[in-house]
């Protein structure tokens, strides 16, 4: 199956905020993790990055936010452009200032800080803009009323859902143009996942924040995203409009757990998968 790049499929109709062009990522100088990933996120869009464990979703996000360097990873080929400017050499601090912030997988709240202090750390790069920060704090509490109730609790003692909300709220405090959202559904009850995705969608619509979402939960991700890329073994194997992906037979079978009209035997499925692996 040939990789279909973003350019060919014509997302370019809208102005692209983020353009990732054929990047290769190597960890520790030896481990090749991404083998040419291209994607593009339009201004104000929600784009999903799907795939199984180890497909390279998180690495792609970290390559964009440049958290990779702290993990001894490196973008060795290709380019990452934000609004036409190459951003690979920037530090995470610079990128946050330019409006790209990552919400890491597994929440990563500051355990010993209160929920409110957690949110305030998100505004670090904004300096001493007290009035604006206070307004944004109210804005975040508007999206997540639950956080207002828990504002004084240490984040380490709040529930998984509250921590995820804190992490998203914290990112929002930096006034981002784009949030890289890594696995927000991890370890949360299905109902809570829906709730968080609804809020993310509202943030996207009301604040105009573009979202690049890495998810294993293909079903939910394709429901809220407008466009999707499917990663496998460090490559984009399929991309398209979310609605088209939802109808795609392969996606249904591999990621949504639905088989097509004619039941295939287990042997065929195995064969098909094995053949794919040879190709890649």
């Amino acid at each position: 199956m040939a990789a279909v790049t973003a350019e060919e499929s014509g997302v370019g109709a809208q102005a692209a905020l983020l353009d990732v062009n054929n990047i290769e990522v190597i960890y520790d100088h030896v481990i090749l993790v991404l083998k040419g990933v291209s994607l593009s996120v339009p201004e104000g869009g929600i784009v999903a990055l799907l795939g199984a464990n180890g497909a390279g979703k998180t690495t792609t996000l970290k390559a964009i936010s440049n958290l990779l360097r702290a993990e001894r990873g490196e973008v060795t080929k290709g380019s990452i452009e934000l609004g036409g400017e190459r951003v690979q050499a920037l530090t995470p601090n610079d990128l946050v200032k330019r409006g790209v912030i990552q919400v890491m997988e597994g929440r990563h709240c500051f355990e010993h800080l209160t929920v409110e202090e957690n949110l305030l750390t998100g505004a670090y790069t904004r300096g001493g803009d007290r009035v604006g920060i206070q307004q944004d704090l109210e804005m975040v509490y508007g999206y997540f009323p639950r956080l207002k109730e828990r504002r004084g609790s240490q984040a380490g003692y709040t529930s998984g859902g509250e921590q995820q909300m804190t992490a998203i709220g914290r990112a929002l405090m930096s006034r981002p143009k784009m949030i890289l959202l890594d696995e927000p559904s991890m370890g949360l009850a299905p109902q809570l996942v829906e709730q968080i995705f609804e809020i993310v969608k509202r943030i996207n619509e009301e604040e105009g924040v573009s979202i690049l979402l890495a998810e294993q939960n293909t079903n939910v991700a394709l429901k809220y995203a407008r466009y999707g890329y499917i990663l496998e073994n460090g490559r984009v194997v399929l991309d398209g409009e979310a609605s088209a992906l939802r109808e795609n037979e392969d996606v249904k079978e591999f990621y949504l757990g639905l088989s097509g009209s004619d039941r295939r035997s287990y042997r065929d499925v195995k064969h098909y998968k094995r053949r794919k692996r040879w190709l890649s």
Partner: peptide, 16 residues
């Protein structure tokens, strides 16, 4: 204090 809790998260919110 944020850095004390979690280096990675601190980096991710842009704390140098």
């Amino acid at each position: 204090r944020a850095v004390a809790d979690d280096h990675q998260a601190a980096l991710s919110v842009g704390i140098p």
